[in-house]
Design a protein around this nucleic acid. Structure first.
Length: 305
DNA sequence: ACGTCGACCTGTGGGC
DNA sequence: TGCCCACAGGTCGACG
């Protein structure tokens, strides 16, 4: 489940329902789901059993939970340690389920808990965490903590930039990188080593709000334009998060299987042929990098070459 | 070093 | 109805 707001919805669910629980069993039903775990499925399972999950963290579209020893006082993400890393890819879901409930069609990994926590406010407590993923672009893996990084950040994602909702996001460095690079603005927004968490939907939304064409060269972006773009990226993501994320179908859900409703608030993405909410001009869709870009031909003028 | 493109998967919906 | 193609929210590695 794709972009930052949807992943943050999942992180909050993990924090509430998974952090602090002890793993009693792991079943890898599809090896591709753990392909980033180089030592293989058996090692993945062996190293997880008996460990307790720490706090849930996120950077961009990646999620991770540091592993603690079951007795517990490891403190917050020991500098030398291991974290469970998760990426949802295009279609991944992390779901809390009752052990007796039927397996999902695309169930890839099952993580069982051996505790029996008292249900909060009368809700049913799932006894297992399931990774369900139709297209298998996502996956789980275990990684050492990156040296000198906080919260047990997995070394495998040390190259991922901070995301725009991170208080330590470096706006000056981002602008400097845009000026230095010879690329276009949407490509830059989707480059997770420059800014993380932005995907195809929120890139189009932020560009529409900024009145910027997706093919605008980044070298032409002034500090003010860059600042405005970042404001719009943050605004649209914050609004989407408040709505529980964007989902066009049941593929994108929180840990309890519920969808968000931000789709109805989208101004650009998926609106081909519909009137621009600012000027009424018919919105356009253009093939772009094996996907699509949606924009208003009047508000977002094609940059001159 | 940097920028671009295709590969990796499964499923769905539209056109014929 | 059935077939085929286009398309789907992401990332990475190979190549120029």
């Amino acid at each position: 489940m794709p972009e930052l707001p949807e992943v943050e919805v999942v992180r909050r669910g993990l924090e509430r329902w998974v952090s602090g629980r002890i793993v009693s069993g792991v079943q890898v039903l599809h090896p591709r789901a753990v392909r980033r775990h180089v030592a293989g499925p058996a090692d993945f399972a062996d190293r997880l059993v008996g460990r307790r999950f720490g706090a849930a963290h996120r950077r961009g579209k990646y999620l991770w939970l540091p592993l603690e020893s079951p007795s517990g006082n490891d403190g917050p993400a020991a500098p030398e340690g291991t974290s469970l890393l998760a990426h949802l890819g295009m279609s991944g879901q992390l779901l809390l389920q009752q052990g007796e409930s039927r397996d999902e069609t695309h169930l890839r990994i099952r993580i069982r808990f051996d505790d029996d926590r008292v249900p909060v406010s009368g809700e049913t407590e799932g006894t297992e965490l399931r990774f369900v993923d139709q297209r298998t672009f996502g996956g789980l893996s275990l990684h050492d903590h990156a040296p000198g990084q906080p919260d047990g950040l997995p070394d495998a994602i040390a190259h991922i930039a901070r995301d725009p909702l991170d208080p330590d996001f470096d706006e000056a460095a981002f602008h400097a990188a845009l000026r230095r690079r010879r690329t276009t603005v949407k490509r830059a927004l989707l480059d997770q080593s420059l800014i993380s968490g932005v995907g195809n939907i929120y890139a189009d939304e932020a560009l529409w709000r900024s009145r910027l064409h997706y093919d605008r060269p980044t070298a032409t972006l002034t500090r003010a334009l860059c600042a405005a773009l970042l404001v719009h990226v943050r605004d649209v993501m914050t609004a989407a998060l408040a709505a529980g994320g964007t989902s066009f179908d049941s593929l994108y859900v929180n840990v309890n299987g519920e969808s968000g409703y931000f789709e109805r608030s989208l101004d650009a993405y998926g609106r081909e042929g519909e009137p621009c909410r600012r000027c009424g001009t018919a919105m356009r869709r253009r093939p772009w990098m094996n996907r699509s870009s949606y924009y208003c031909p009047r508000c977002q003028r094609t940059p001159r070459r």
